[in-house]
């Protein structure tokens, strides 16, 4: 990371249209890449939607699918990679966006930085032992998933732009993991893809902790965990801008 080392913590948990919430990721990446912002931790919620990676959307559009007309959830596009990920009121998304003078940079570095805070928060707040790993049969699978006992609780993806890296995760906090998997499976059936899916490889934090949790329950533990990891680098904080 280069330039400004002072992080801004942006808690963006107010209601808002999903397209706007997702579009803020692109705007954030552009602002950091242009040097208008230093590094930012964004914690954000969104409404029901299905969010595709930039090139997954491109691939489907090239295959002739009109994403805007597919349902039942609104289909949105994020600036990062990977396949479809459901968002909803039981999910909390976590974004790190920071200046980077040398791109392409090894993606692993960004993922490690993001996962470190998530792992620390889950351990301290919920006593869950999480780590990176594949979860075959889950949606948007990858080796930098956040998994607990082999079950995916969050997926991660990344975008690198001249001057900045954005890496984000969507954490399944409330509800059931399998309901999200079914949403993704239903979407891909429309484009002729049929898995394989494995409902046993996804779980929400509520399911794993054995009690009802909401995204709000995780915001402070996550802020604390990231700030602790950054040590004396310092941070300022904004809400719902």
């Amino acid at each position: 990371m280069g330039r400004d080392q002072s992080w801004t913590v942006w808690v963006d948990a107010s209601p808002g249209p999903p397209w706007e919430k997702v579009a803020r990721e692109e705007a954030l990446l552009g602002a950091v890449a242009a040097g208008r912002l230093g590094p930012v931790l964004r914690l954000w919620t969104s409404g029901p939607s299905l969010v595709l990676g930039r090139l997954e959307a491109r691939r489907l559009e090239q295959a002739g699918y009109a994403l805007a007309q597919m349902g039942p959830l609104p289909v949105l596009v994020r600036p990062s990679g990977g396949t479809a990920v459901p968002h909803g009121p039981d999910d909390l998304s976590v974004t790190l966006c920071y200046p980077c003078d040398q791109v392409p940079a090894a993606p692993e570095m960004g993922y490690r930085r993001l996962l470190a805070g998530l792992v620390r928060a889950l351990e301290q707040a919920l006593g869950l032992q999480a780590g990176p790993g594949w979860a075959p049969g889950s949606f948007c699978d990858g080796r930098f998933n956040l998994v607990v006992g082999g079950r995916k609780v969050a997926g991660t993806a990344q975008a690198q732009r001249r001057g900045a890296v954005l890496v984000h995760a969507t954490v399944m906090v409330g509800g059931e993991g399998r309901s999200r998997l079914r949403q993704v499976a239903a979407f891909y059936r429309q484009v002729g893809a049929h898995g394989p899916w494995d409902e046993g490889r996804v779980a929400s934090l509520s399911e794993l902790a054995g009690r009802a949790l909401s995204p709000q329950d995780l915001i402070e533990p996550l802020v604390d965990a990231f700030l602790a990891g950054w040590g004396s680098a310092g941070a300022s904080r904004t809400h719902d801008e």
């Binding site: 990676g53 930039r54 090139l55 990679g81 692993e108 948007c140 080796r143 930098f144 991660t156």
Partner: peptide, 8 residues
Amino acid sequence: ESVKSVSD
């Protein structure tokens, strides 16, 4: 795209 990371 590599490792779910998109680069221009």
